[in-house]
Design a protein around this nucleic acid. Structure first.
Lengths: 218, 218
DNA sequence: CGATGTGAACAACTTCACAGCG
DNA sequence: CGCTGTGAAGTTGTTCACATCG
């Protein structure tokens, strides 16, 4: 029953399965086979079945799986908490977009606090969230009991932001800065970190394009 | 010499190495050992050395690696083309943020075209890019020889966008929609796709937080 | 019969152990 | 002597083959 026994790769796919099942639901598809889902996601159906077996999902032999049932099961693991509050650091273009991002809300996340160091932004309000001085970060985050922070500042600022986060009650970080954070700066408590490097994502596409082009030539 | 021989996982880390080496450069660190880089990234130094061996990078035994030399080598593979033009579909909050995103430029990417279906946006200009009607997508993308598209539309629109992309000259897609695209819709030519599901990223953090919390209790 | 569930085989990736060289 | 480079061992993840059961 311990979640730790579920391999990481399976957890990663859970989020993909969830999206796919939501799709099935919208299409009014009440049940599905492992082949149905495998075809959509371009993976092998045995992988789907093995993944489902890790999370204890049961299908009916000869029939398949019940969409709602599996979706419920998957969501229970992938989205374990109904609502989590999150703090945003950096309210530039990207930060504002995230503040306005509807998808977070539907998934049970709420950006409850937003911080910046820019005087002109501090005090203004977006979507009912008043932008606060980054200097108040530690205090306010603690008061709200927030454990997740999103970093959306320019690269130069990331060093200062890390300092701020390090001795706060933050335990997990979603980092949009190109600096790869790894648990960085030999910190006592180890952070859970996801790095999203937008230019690298494009570059990756470009890499595979180039590869494709060069293999075509040969 | 064929890039295809480099494992995917190594390619993924190349972008991380690149960022790390840029850091070394900024700090004036002219050379480094595999331990230096491994410590920062929280990985094993033997992995670094093995990775470097795939891309043919040579260090000096007893000394280490030359920062500039390796950075050049890594960039050559990870960022194979000096400049790539990209098309953006969907100029909402996120799309606008991407249009304004400075990181793309520094990495050699240029959002050359931007599309939307909203009458009120079409014709207006952001950063010198005039927003065009999505109906002109195929034509304009072809004219510019663009192969990469970024999808930043609301979920409901993704189906239409896919249709548009499918019979265009686009070959690679960066998808910010929560719908997982996989090469989707049994298309003749197979696409290179990266999916960035922002809420799932947060959810993943939340999952590991919950896991941490529950193991602490036991 | 048709689809699931799973041990066993296989493949990919990481780490170890240590030889090699500046 | 210190740090790299690499075959071999170990680990993790995927696929196969097939028994199982509604």
């Amino acid at each position: 029953m311990n979640k730790s026994e579920v391999p990481d790769e399976v957890i990663n796919r859970l989020y993909i399965y969830a999206r796919c099942l939501e799709g099935f639901r919208e299409e009014g598809k009440k049940s599905f086979s492992s082949d149905d889902i495998a075809d959509r996601l371009n993976i092998k159906s045995t992988l789907v079945r093995k993944d489902f077996s890790y999370i204890g999902t049961m299908g009916k032999r000869g029939v398949g799986y019940d969409t709602e049932e599996v979706l419920k099961e998957v969501n229970q693991i992938a989205f374990p908490i109904k609502e989590r509050k999150v703090a945003l650091i950096g309210v530039g273009k990207l930060g504002s977009a995230l503040l306005n991002f509807y998808g977070f809300k539907t998934q049970g996340f709420k950006i409850a606090l937003a911080f910046d160091k820019d005087r002109r932004k501090i005090g203004s309000e977006i979507r009912g969230i008043k932008i606060d001085d980054i200097n108040n970060f530690k205090k306010r985050v603690k008061k709200e009991g927030i454990k997740i922070a999103i970093i959306a500042v320019p690269s130069e600022e990331v060093v200062n932001v890390i300092k701020e986060i390090k001795n706060s009650c933050i335990e997990a970080v979603l980092n949009f800065t190109p600096s790869y954070l790894s648990s960085l700066n030999n910190c006592s408590n180890d952070f859970i970190i996801r790095n999203i490097d937008l230019s690298s994502e494009l570059a990756r596409l470009s890499y595979y394009l180039s590869e494709k082009e060069s293999t075509k030539r040969n």
